[in-house]
Amino acid sequence: MFLEVKGLTKSFDGTQVLKGIDFTLEKGQVLSVIGSSGSGKTTLLRCINSLETADAGEILVGGNKIFDAQDAGAGRGIPREARLSFGLVFQSFHLFPQYTALENITLAPTLRIRTLCRKRRLSRAARDELLQKATEKALELLSKVGLSDKRDFYPCQLSGGQQQRVSIARALALNPDVLCFDEPTSALDPEITGEVLKIIKELAAEDMTMIIVTHEMTFARDVSDKILFMDGGVIAAQGSPEEIFGSHENTRLQTFLTSFYSNQAGAEPV
């Protein structure tokens, strides 16, 4: 198993939000996490990305232990390198407003390269070469998300969909093993969710390992290899899209999907 999440729990002020989450994911697979608001989907993603420290549990990527609640509890924080196994695309983008699209993508890699070169006492020429490569990679990613012509635009000059595409490129620039999305289209107008979903589909076709928290059921069914249905802090059901969207025996899942489809009636997304 490429990604293993074992026994993850998390409480906020005595309220247990995650009550023991276990799942695995193969390399190159896409996992969608669905469920109603407050079911713990976002908290799960935030724990995986070390934005929250889980109270118990472990996370392994490619057999390496990325997170162990026992270590974290003992005050040994999460090493930054481990954190970079995961990338995260936020619901509301969180691009850095004072940087252009290109600079948003190159900022973190540039800082990493500079720190690395200082530590290893690399020559200026070697450093410049690495920086040059980082810029080339960023330009490649910009063209991948279809925004080569916007490289020098500031976030405030871009539409929501364009901003989200830049933020996907920004996350990809650090070569994460697993790319996570937290409701990537929830802050977007319905007409432009398509352009973001298209990019994610392309990434899936390139065998990028991804975890997507989403309310786009049709999209989840089309793009995923595996689906988790969360309810009240536990995984209430999991399986292939066919199993989940077929007639699953879990009644909570059935209620959720029924209410979802009745709300969506007449407005079938892409």
Partner: peptide
């Protein structure tokens, strides 16, 4: 948080 997940 954006800076954190980018390893800064």
């Amino acid at each position: 948080e954006a800076g954190q997940v980018l390893g800064m």
